[in-house]
Design a protein around this nucleic acid. Structure first.
Lengths: 97, 97
DNA sequence: AAAACAATTCGATAGTTATCAAATTAGAAA
DNA sequence: TTTCTAATTTGATAACTATCGAATTGTTTT
């Protein structure tokens, strides 16, 4: 287990706005699981009280921590959750009784 | 779900040294599950490259995030994991497929 | 080609944080 | 009561971060 890497993941989720951003991406992935084309960022940006530069910064942090993938679809940016990484985090937080 | 509270928990785990500290406390709780008297801090402090003031600071952060409880036993400080909070985190990170 | 839209980059700033050394408190042992 | 050990507090500093406005890049629409 790589403590550095995991700490980075937690740091990525440690800002309230960034955490909500992440959860929105997860939510989107859950609701459209079969047809999942990813989560359009411009739609999400409207719902937050922070500007595009900050959203962009937060997305970079989440990507850097490998919690999400992003991809350009023409004019838009779409985001998907990296479920493998989330599994890893859950594994780390499991308590063996 | 309280985003602020959860973000605080993630922040508490976002520093590598603090994460290892937390994991040590968990580990101790796991190995001595039945006889669990808590984890003695002075033993742990020796194993880290950081001084007592910093350990103290990190413990406060973990306590503040309600990830652990601490209690004085005479001269010593013992720590235990707040399993309810860990469960909450695991719940938040679950992805519904 | 021009205008419009989505997103990123840059530079700045106010606020936060990890860490230490020194001093202090609390308790146990001598 | 003096000494030793465990832990905390305080004050300082260097490093990092969230956010913004302005400027820029990339893509689509007109």
């Amino acid at each position: 287990m790589d403590t550095q890497k995991m700490a980075k993941v937690f740091k990525a989720l440690s800002n309230p706005n960034r955490l909500e951003l992440y959860l929105k991406i997860v939510e989107n992935q859950e609701t459209s699981y079969k047809t999942n084309q990813g989560c359009l960022m411009c739609e999400i940006t409207e719902k937050f009280n922070i500007g595009p530069p900050t959203i962009s910064h937060h997305l970079k942090e989440l990507t850097n921590a490998e919690l999400i993938f992003t991809e350009r679809k023409g004019k838009f940016l779409v985001a998907k959750v990296n479920e493998a990484m989330v599994d890893e985090v859950n594994e780390l937080l499991k308590i063996n009784k």
